[in-house]
């Protein structure tokens, strides 16, 4: 005999089923994509010299000196994470300073607007001359790309806090520091999270752009090198790895989001 489910159990079950459905469709799309790609290459519908194919990508990865690919991935990931953290933390600190000192904010405003409009890649040659053509230049490029946007979006979140709430805290005798800690920062948590999400994307842009410019190692280097010697399998393999890394980093931020929601 079938057990009778309560309404709530039915609801939970339908939620769970829906989740499974979405997940399996997502997976199916992925499998379909690679299968069609592989099939099209095998049947010569497409020129796999130009488009590569899943099997060729795997072969490329397998044929590389086994530690070689990990070295490139490691370098790129390191540059990206270091750049991401520096830009997010420093950007938030600068936003706090600009919130705290109104005059400083007014003074800095036009500079920030100009820096934001400037295409950071234009600074590439300068960066190389200043810090050398190593990983430092790439991290600096990443920081430059992320930080202005971080400052602007976080500051806007700080300033959008309800005046009534600030008034309430002041009427209780709160100091400026208390207003910052108990009101401005927790109030901006959703904006801080979306800032992190944007920075995940931007920091990958920064790293790859940096590696195109200067590097001798990393996934961006592999892509450029692969393109120059027409090893498109290598280009595709590196791009694929990039996709995976970006997804993993995004999931990391999603974890932070869950955590922040609980402890704000």
């Amino acid at each position: 005999m079938k057990k009778v489910l309560s309404l709530h159990e039915q609801y939970l079950r339908s939620v769970r089923l829906n989740k499974i459905k979405v997940l399996s469709i997502q997976l199916a799309i992925l499998i379909l994509f690679f299968s069609v790609w592989e099939l099209a290459a095998q049947l010569n519908w497409i020129d796999s010299f130009i488009t590569s194919s899943p099997s060729r990508i795997l072969k490329t990865l397998g044929s590389m000196e086994s530690l070689e690919i990990f070295r490139h991935v490691g370098i790129t990931v390191m540059e990206c994470i270091v750049g991401f953290i520096i830009a997010s933390v420093l950007g938030t600190l600068i936003a706090v300073l600009l919130w705290w000192f109104e005059t400083l904010r007014k003074v800095m405003e036009p500079y920030i607007v100009v820096l934001n409009a400037l295409p950071k890649i234009a600074l590439g040659p300068l960066i190389i001359i200043w810090v050398g053509a190593g990983y430092k230049a790439i991290i600096l490029m990443t920081v430059l790309i992320c930080i202005i946007v971080t400052v602007m979006s976080v500051l806007a979140a700080f300033l959008s806090c309800d005046d009534g709430k600030i008034l309430l805290m002041r009427s209780m005798g709160a100091s400026k520091f208390q207003i910052l800690i108990k009101l401005i920062l927790p109030n901006a948590v959703p904006n801080l999270i979306s800032m992190l999400k944007i920075n995940v994307g931007l920091s990958w842009v920064g790293v790859i752009m940096g590696e195109y410019l200067v590097s001798a190692a990393g996934l961006g280097y592999l892509i450029i090198y692969g393109g120059q010697v027409f090893k498109l399998d290598l280009v595709m393999a590196s791009t694929l790895i990039l996709c995976i890394l970006a997804a993993v980093m995004y999931m990391g931020v999603a974890l932070v989001e869950k955590f922040a929601k609980r402890f704000r």
Partner: peptide, 8 residues
Amino acid sequence: GTGNDVGY
């Protein structure tokens, strides 16, 4: 100045 005398 503000303090704890007044609840607003």
